[in-house]
């Protein structure tokens, strides 16, 4: 394979990986963030305890989290195929990513919100804040730096999942590493994709740390 073809391949793979990762992360947060918040508010010491919901949702999250991503993806592929019409490529991989990642995101969010001082929540309640106001103005705002750090970790994890999905014809950098690096014995391609992945992870982690620190008013 000449350098130009390789470059084009890598460029396409990187774009696919980034799209899968970003869309996957975004949708995972659209599901995981509300679920994470609800796990906090419905807990016995939460602002609106709902023991049954808390137990059931906690159980669902744990079940999905206990399945290794590749197994989960293979197990759910038939249903994903029914749902979106295809079992391979970036669309199918993104669906699998979301399925695997939202419970992870929910737990990350839950952990971040646990760091919010219960005294501040109590103060807001004493002021007559509604539960919705407490969630929006106290929980999410006070936990913002931790939520952003968590988001960086979640994005990187989802990037890793997307690379794994490549082994099952998922597209992106993982796909290139498997198809060319492994099946066609081209170690150079393998190592180049690894390097690209490392660079992507570094960039995401740096962005996460910097944005979180910039938006944290506790440190000055």
């Amino acid at each position: 394979m000449d350098a130009q073809t390789l470059l084009k391949l890598l460029g396409e793979g990187t774009v696919q990986t980034l799209i899968m990762t970003l869309v996957g992360t975004l949708v995972s947060y659209m599901i995981g963030l509300p679920v994470g918040v609800s796990l906090i508010t419905s807990s016995p010491n939460g602002i609106r305890p709902m023991p049954v919901y808390n137990k059931v949702m906690g159980f669902i999250v744990n079940v999905i989290r206990s399945m290794p991503f590749l197994i989960l993806m293979i197990a759910f592929m038939p249903y994903i195929r029914i749902l979106i019409g295809t079992g391979i490529g970036t669309a199918a991989t993104t669906a699998a990513l979301i399925l695997a990642a939202w419970p992870f995101v929910a737990r990350m969010v839950e952990q971040s919100l646990l760091e919010v001082d219960p005294g501040v929540i109590e103060a807001a309640q004493a002021m007559g804040a509604s539960n919705m106001q407490i969630i929006r103005k106290v929980l999410l705002l006070e936990a913002r730096p931790s939520l952003l750090n968590g988001a960086a970790v979640a994005t990187i994890t989802i990037l890793g999942y997307s690379a794994m999905a490549g082994t099952l014809g998922g597209g992106g950098l993982g796909d290139i590493a498997i198809r060319f690096g492994h099946y066609r014995f081209q170690p150079t391609v393998m190592w180049i994709t690894i390097i690209v992945l490392v660079v992507l992870v570094q960039i995401m982690q740096e962005i996460g740390i910097r944005v979180a620190a910039k938006l944290d008013n506790r440190i000055n």
Partner: peptide, 19 residues
């Protein structure tokens, strides 16, 4: 909540929003 707005509270640990 409407009544609570007429009853303020201060605390030992201040309980200010850190952000």
């Amino acid at each position: 909540n409407l009544q609570r707005r007429k009853i303020s509270m201060i605390f030992q640990q201040f309980n200010l929003l850190m952000q």
